[in-house]
Amino acid sequence: MMDDLSLLGFGPDGWAPLLLKGCMLTLAVSATSMAIGTVLGVLLAWARLKGPRWLRRTALVYGVVLRGVPELLVILLLYFGLPSLILSLAETFGWDAPGLPPPFLIGSLSVGLVSAAYQAEIFRGGVGAIAKGQFEAARAMGFSDLQCFHRIVLPQVARIVLPALGNVWQFNLKDSALIAVTGLSELMRTSLVAAGSTRHPFLFFGVAMALYLVLTTLSSTAFHYGGRYSNRWDRG
């Protein structure tokens, strides 16, 4: 038992510093992929709602593919495939060999690309939930498209989609564990390395589960209060 405790401590044989770094990296990867997913998701939702026909189709196919293929495959494909793609592009066009994306970026990007497909659906639903009359009223009052988005769409959609985005965040957090297969030392991979080299898998996977529970609980609490704040004018 003392043995186990020193493995989890901050001493020379303790894994606490690496596990905590892993937590930070997990949060960083999840936040980056969430941001990538939001930007791309808004663009996809716009493409589905207002884009020209070919763009609508492209966005639709994107959603079907990225929501239908296992996240693990997307990560592996990007991790192994992206560098060779970049290199062959560079060769074709005669560029100098460009710097290659680090695993942090590849991991965030692959989780972000999947996240975007889900977020696009949420934004699309959010815009759909706004009464049509409001757009007509805005147009009647001479609002431009941008004004309409800023004054009518954004404040309402932000409130409507917040709980759903909270769900996507939780999925991102858990999907980030799959990036372990690229060797990025986030929480999952750190616990795997620790389990393998100390041969105490029960201990380290247990600790990792507890740490993920802390992360998911803290962030769902944050979203809960965020939701209360954004709805503060609704009450009573």
Binding site: Y79, G99, P102, P103, F104, L105, I106, G107, T182, G183, L184, S185, R189
Partner: peptide
């Protein structure tokens, strides 16, 4: 494999 994040 792990990735080799240069800076990271």
């Amino acid at each position: 494999r792990a990735g080799v994040g240069f800076g990271l």
